[in-house]
Design a protein around this nucleic acid. Structure first.
Length: 441
RNA sequence: GCGACUGUGGUGAAGUGGUUAACACAGCGGGUUGUGGUCCCGUCAUGCGAGGGUUCGAUCCCCUUCGGUCGCCCCA
């Protein structure tokens, strides 16, 4: 193959696009009902939007597509996540000054991370995310989780689990961090290289370590809960109570620490526990960030958000046997029975299309039999047959596939007859075929 | 970044150091000269991811490289 797509990228092909259309449609419905508006930010930003001072996550350290153009000195980065760009935009456009606070936004779009691909992980993937900025209320944390939870529930996903934890406010976190460093002080030299780095940069992440998890030192680590100040603890308890109020099942996971370093208070992950999912099973995840808006030069206000991996969402649906999308059937297929009839076929096809019927015809001079196979394959509701006889007489043959009934009608009556067939079908099936011609009137 | 497995037509796949690369599905043509979905017949890879090397000869052996899959790490 002379040309192939870069590692970890994917073409979303026409045969699969209906899945994406369905998800995008549902995203619009849910965000509409919840009162969240879409924001679209650039696919690349200045590198320092993503790479902030003390950030020690692998994602920003070594998984970013960062580049500098030859004739420029500015470093740009393909966005690896959505939150940073949204926060930058929030501040840049002074949205903190808008009358309605908090500002509730959502986004859908590709993200780029230079990782080794595997099941549920690609270098370009798509996220649907929400951000609520400008208020700090535990029930807002609940609201955002509720949006995502009801979204996956509406899809029919059942094998889902909410894992939740709190990191507390800065004071609580500092106290906990100090306790962790004290706990690991004497043993850090025996731990893995990553942990030694984490020890210096972000001790919380040691809790995530898989390498050293069997060691004795990991068994009796101090608990975050013991270092939460009263306010942080109360906040977390209210979040949990809100989830209970809405009937959203959750599991407190004291070891849950998110990868991005900007999180404070609530952090959560919604995972699929379905066996088919492989190791990348988190469908959506996020948390509250107290300091991020200020970091970008805005006021000291808080935000909360999450991001959902759409490819992973599709995997989760497949794992649970949920069919997404439907290949759209053809309303009419025009059979051209001789090369001489091609012009007339095109005219008829065009008339059908103008009337709002999804229509197509043959351009390969294929046999009658082959054209009829296309009628089947594309689930056309009617076949329109045009040959030399019809050309001479100025008529067309319309065959309704379901009933096998065929009638010869004058060209002038074509659309009237087709309308009639489709109206009759709607009545019998109760389905509303969405034809443009019905809305024209 | 590390590891394991893997790469033959539109698809699923067999196969071998040596003239024509099985078979099946799909497609196309025909049997049925203008009515499909069954059946039967025919046809369909100058090519075995790419680039080198070994050899009289390589899809098959060796090297490199690019993909894919899954796991680790990390994360949606």
């Amino acid at each position: 193959m002379a040309y192939q797509m870069p590692r970890g990228t994917q073409d979303i092909l026409p045969k699969d696009i209906s899945k994406w259309h369905q998800l995008e449609e549902m995203i619009r419905q849910f965000t509409y009902v919840y009162g969240y508006d879409e924001i679209r930010t650039p696919i690349f930003e200045h590198t320092n939007v993503f790479k902030r001072g003390n950030d020690s996550s692998d994602m920003v350290n070594k998984e970013m597509y960062t580049f500098t153009l030859d004739n420029s000195s500015t470093s740009l980065t393909l966005r690896p996540e959505g939150t940073a760009g949204v926060c930058r935009s929030f501040v840049e456009h002074k949205m903190f000054g808008e009358p309605d606070q908090p500002v509730k936004m959502y986004y859908v779009g590709p993200q780029c991370r230079h990782e080794r691909p595997q099941k549920g992980r690609q270098r370009i993937f798509h996220q649907f995310g929400v951000e609520v900025i400008g208020a700090k209320h535990p029930l807002l944390d609940v609201e955002t989780i509720s949006l995502g939870w009801s979204f996956v529930s509406a899809l029919g996903l059942k094998d889902m689990k909410v894992l939740i934890n709190t990191l507390g406010d800065d004071a609580s976190r500092d106290a906990y961090r100090a306790a962790l460093k004290e706990h690991f002080k004497n043993d850090i030299d025996s731990m893995c290289a990553d942990c030694r780095r984490r020890y210096e940069q972000n001790p919380l992440r040691i809790l995530d370590c898989k390498v050293d998890k069997e060691k004795e030192i990991m068994q009796n680590i101090p608990k975050m809960q013991d270092y939460l100040n009263e306010e942080s603890n109360a906040y977390f308890q209210q979040v949990l109570r809100g989830l209970e109020e809405l009937g959203i099942p959750y599991e407190v996971d004291e070891r849950l620490v998110r990868g991005l370093d900007y999180y404070t208070h609530t952090v959560f992950e919604v995972v699929s526990v379905n066996k088919e999912m492989g190791s990348q099973s988190t469908v959506f995840a996020g948390g509250r960030y107290d300091g991020l808006i200020e970091y970008f030069g805005g006021p000291s206000i808080s935000g909360i958000g999450w991001a959902m991996g759409l490819e992973r969402l599709i995997l989760a649906c497949e794992a649970e046997g949920i069919e997404l999308g439907e290949e759209p059937a053809l309303d009419a297929y025009v059979l051209c029975l001789s090369p001489q009839a091609a012009l007339m076929s095109l005219r008829v096809t065009t008339q059908l299309r103008a009337a709002g019927y999804r229509s197509d015809m043959d351009y390969l001079n294929r046999s009658f039999k082959a054209q009829f196979k296309t009628v089947d394959r594309r689930h056309a509701k009617i076949a329109v047959l045009i040959g030399e006889t019809e050309m001479e007489q100025g008529t067309v043959n319309i065959k309704e596939i379901a009933t096998q009934v065929q009638q010869t009608v004058a060209m002038d009556d074509l659309i009237d007859v087709v309308d009639h067939i489709f109206e009759a079908e709607e009545e019998s099936t109760g389905h509303c075929a969405c034809h443009a011609h019905e809305e024209e009137e």
